[in-house]
């Protein structure tokens, strides 16, 4: 999943990028509101982490413009402004969650998971498709009871496919959600990741989970709870 961080404090921005990248997210980060708005409008993010007090364009204005343009990407506001009216202002401007600085990284991760879960219309952190289970909180795949070991890139591709189960996803779309903008992406990166995934899944007896739609992209079967399709 791809996350945009708009935070002007360099050190905090770098820590957020480091932590979220380590957690498996593709992360883009910018230091002012104007640049943040451009990124949010031109790239499809799964989540935006937004500071309020920003140079060039403040977070509330950025959020207002984003929502006015019909952008529904979940936005998590980070701010040192902790008064009730300030939090209310942020939420009313279109934020999906509000986290007051200082905050723990674990809490931030939990809130990001909750927001992405809510965005896909699920109340559970666990997604199951075709015998494969994804635990979003533990950031782990499993087939049956045994874990499925995947590289970060494979994890990111399969996660995105399963999160969008039942929908055909183009290579470009998968790339956009799986890689941060500063990453060098080879033209066949998604294809080779899918091939590696199919091999690992086949070793566990899972065949045809990822379907190729010629000229369109890839499709994973309709989503369901693990209990339902196990």
């Amino acid at each position: 999943m791809r996350v945009l961080i708009v935070e002007d404090t360099r050190r905090l921005r770098e820590s957020l990028v480091d932590g979220l990248t380590a957690a498996g997210y593709a992360v883009d980060a910018v230091g002012d509101g104007r640049e943040g708005l451009i990124h949010a409008r031109t790239t499809e993010y799964d989540l935006v982490v937004l500071d309020i007090m920003l140079p060039e364009l403040d977070g509330i204005s950025l959020l207002g413009r984003l929502r006015a343009a019909g952008n529904t990407t979940p936005v998590l506001v980070l701010s040192a402004r902790d008064r009730v009216e300030q939090r209310v202002e942020g939420l009313r401007a279109g934020a999906d969650d509000y986290l007051v600085k200082p905050f723990s990284f674990d809490e931030l991760l939990a809130r990001i998971e909750a927001l992405t879960r809510r965005a896909r219309g699920s109340a559970s952190n666990v997604v199951g498709v075709g015998g494969v289970t994804l635990d979003l909180a533990a950031r782990r795949f499993s087939v049956g009871d045994s874990p499925l070991e995947l590289s970060p890139r494979e994890y990111a591709v399969l996660e995105y496919l399963m999160m969008n189960a039942g929908r055909t996803l183009s290579r470009g779309e998968i790339e956009e959600h799986v890689y941060a903008e500063d990453r060098q992406v080879w033209s066949n990166a998604i294809d080779s990741a899918v091939a590696a995934l199919r091999k690992k899944l086949a070793e566990r007896g899972v065949h045809d989970l990822i379907e190729t739609r010629r000229g369109l992209g890839y499709l994973v079967g309709k989503a369901g709870t693990p209990g339902a399709d196990a």
Binding site: T9, R11, L12, S15, L16, D18, G19, A22, A23, L78, A80, V100, K101, P102, F103, S104, F105, D106
Partner: peptide
């Protein structure tokens, strides 16, 4: 709060 947030994040990420 900003430096405290920086510290919390640094230690949080390094710990995790």
């Amino acid at each position: 709060r900003t430096p405290i947030a920086e510290l919390t994040m640094l230690t949080g990420v390094a710990g995790r």
